[in-house]
């Protein structure tokens, strides 16, 4: 029983990480048709910016309020980089989907290399509050606090995203744009402003994943974003591109499946099951679980 609770909660922690990365990817793809390989870079930027801020930014630190400031700084940096990428690199190639993918591929290679050039290839210890190293007893299972922190963060982000999509004008534009971008412009709306916005949101969520992932894993390294990205892609496809809720469901399914199978089966088998799940979903429902509709 304890093991099941522990596996469920660590699985959900993993799911939270996937969701934070996948929700932005999904919105960016759903709205702007950009398959963003550079999304892992936003995660890396968030992680390194948090790490840097904790050591160098006045007012920031690795504990208490200072830690919050450091994470905020990281999220802001990730968001800023995402906006710059959209404005400078993606926008000029508007509606040329393949070229956009190619640019993000180039960016993912160059960006990770740049992180590596600046801070080295080796993992660096991540500043984290003392309480995040502890465990909390949940139904008899000793669950790492860092995992719980991820779950809480993902739930908050999910709620905020849904509220934003549901009740704001830009949320309305994004939901409509995911369905039919052309028709949004035909109503007199400059949909490209919404593109920048989803990049900013996606970048912020990914950067948060980077910062909290750093707390969870205890280290930060340049390649961290890349390996997460593949599973985030799988989550996006399973959940249905453009659907935030779909991403959430798919993240939970993938996280739990991976954790349980890896524990009860051979290590690595869970990862394989996830790919199997993807193949099954794609063959049965090529549009993903939620289809290309941004539900709010």
């Amino acid at each position: 029983m304890n093991t099941v609770v522990l596996l469920t909660l660590t699985g959900l922690g993993l799911a939270a990480l996937y969701f934070l990365v996948a929700s932005g990817l999904s919105l960016v793809f759903g709205l702007a048709d950009v398959l963003n390989f550079a999304h892992g870079l936003f995660l890396g930027v968030g992680a390194y910016a948090t790490w840097w801020a904790a050591g160098n930014l006045p007012g920031a630190g690795s504990d208490g309020l200072g830690f919050v400031v450091a994470v905020l700084f990281g999220v802001l940096a990730g968001s800023l980089v995402a906006v710059l990428v959209e404005l400078v690199l993606i926008r000029p190639l508007y509606s040329r989907t393949i070229e956009q993918v190619l640019v993000t591929v180039g960016l993912s290679l160059a960006g990770v290399a740049l992180l590596q050039a600046t801070w080295g290839a080796d993992p660096r210890p991540f500043p984290r509050p003392d309480w995040s190293r502890d465990v909390t007893s949940v139904l008899g299972a000793q669950v790492p606090n860092a995992g719980l922190l991820l779950i809480v963060a993902a739930v908050v982000v999910l709620g905020a995203l849904l509220a934003f999509l549901r009740w704001t004008r830009y949320g309305l534009i994004i939901r409509a744009g995911v369905e039919n971008r052309e028709m949004v412009t035909a109503l007199g709306i400059d949909v490209r402003k919404a593109f920048t916005l989803v990049f900013a949101i996606g970048g912020a969520a990914a950067a948060l994943a980077g910062a909290l992932g750093g707390v969870y894993f205890g280290t930060v390294s340049p390649g961290q974003g890349g390996s997460l990205l593949i599973f985030a892609f799988i989550v996006v496809v399973i959940g249905g591109m453009g659907s935030v809720v779909g991403s959430a469901y798919a993240a939970v399914a993938v996280g739990l499946l991976q954790q349980f199978v890896n524990y009860y089966g051979t290590s690595g088998l869970g990862d394989l099951c996830v790919v199997g799940l993807l193949a099954v979903v794609l063959l049965l429902r090529p549009q993903g679980l939620a289809g290309k509709v941004a539900h709010a």
Binding site: G106, L109, A117
Partner: peptide, 17 residues
Amino acid sequence: PLSQPLFVLGTVFILAV
């Protein structure tokens, strides 16, 4: 950055696109 082949190649690639 210049000591990272992938940085140089990635940048060249983006410019090429």
